[in-house]
Simulated assay, not measured.
Amino acid sequence: MMSVIKRIPWVSLTLALLTYCSLGWVISQERLPPIAWFAIIPIITLVIGALATPWTKINFYSNFIFKSNTRTFGISVLGAFALFLMISWFRLFLDSLLVASATILVRIDFQMAGFRYIDTFAVLFFIAMTGLAMGVFINRFIL
């Protein structure tokens, strides 16, 4: 048990917790209706799952997507639209990039420590939900 605790990358987990706490704070400042949280939580779960997925599965899906010219064209149009959104909503893009970078850092650290994919996903999900709740709590009740 002690060797598992020593292998956990505490610095990157703390960085991810602070990042998701900041995200929760930013989202709660928008004063979204409570029903919006039912969309935010699954989206964050999907992002964590996508970023924590092993590279072999990403390779499989990318080969499937780029197999035909129609799919490649569709992905190119979506990529151009995503670039337009990045430019027009730069602040949102930077917040998203920060969250994705912290999540990827935790994934890499967990992979280097020898943890399984499901362990990485579970810890990242716990950290993300805890950070979101802390950010909302700080914004609503402390400040």
Rank of each mutant, 00 (worst) to 15 (best):
M1V: 01
M1F: 00
V4T: 11
I8G: 02
I8M: 04
P9L: 02
P9V: 02
S12V: 05
T14I: 09
T14N: 09
T14L: 10
L15I: 04
A16R: 08
A16Q: 13
A16W: 03
T19M: 10
L23Y: 00
G24W: 00
V26F: 02
V26M: 06
I27Y: 05
I27V: 05
I27P: 02
S28Y: 03
S28Q: 06
Q29Y: 04
Q29H: 06
E30G: 04
R31P: 02
R31I: 03
R31Y: 01
L32A: 03
L32E: 03
L32N: 05
P34N: 05
I35T: 09
I35C: 08
I35Y: 11
W37T: 01
F38A: 13
A39P: 04
A39I: 10
A39M: 08
A39L: 14
I40Q: 03
P42C: 03
I43R: 11
T45N: 14
T45C: 12
T45H: 12
L46Q: 11
L46H: 09
V47P: 01
V47N: 05
V47Y: 06
V47T: 04
G49H: 13
A52H: 14
A52I: 10
W55T: 12
T56I: 10
T56W: 06
K57R: 13
I58H: 14
I58Q: 12
N59M: 12
Y61I: 15
S62P: 06
S62W: 07
S62I: 12
N63D: 11
I65E: 02
F66I: 09
K67N: 13
K67G: 09
S68G: 08
N69T: 10
T70K: 15
R71K: 14
T72S: 15
T72K: 15
T72W: 08
F73Q: 13
S76K: 15
V77P: 05
L78A: 10
L78K: 09
G79H: 08
G79P: 08
F81V: 15
A82L: 12
L83R: 07
F84W: 14
M86P: 10
M86A: 13
I87N: 09
S88W: 10
W89L: 12
W89H: 13
R91I: 15
L92R: 14
F93P: 13
F93A: 15
F93V: 15
F93R: 11
L94S: 02
S96A: 14
L98M: 13
L98T: 11
V99G: 07
A100L: 10
A100F: 09
S101C: 12
T103R: 01
I104R: 11
L105M: 13
L105P: 11
L105R: 12
V106P: 05
V106T: 07
R107S: 12
R107Q: 15
I108M: 05
D109I: 04
Q111W: 04
Q111N: 05
Q111A: 10
M112N: 07
A113F: 01
G114T: 06
F115A: 04
R116V: 09
D119F: 07
D119C: 04
D119A: 04
A122P: 01
V123S: 07
I127P: 03
I127C: 09
A128M: 02
G131V: 00
G131Y: 03
A133N: 03
A133Q: 03
M134C: 07
G135D: 00
V136I: 07
I138K: 00
I138C: 00
I142N: 00
I142V: 03
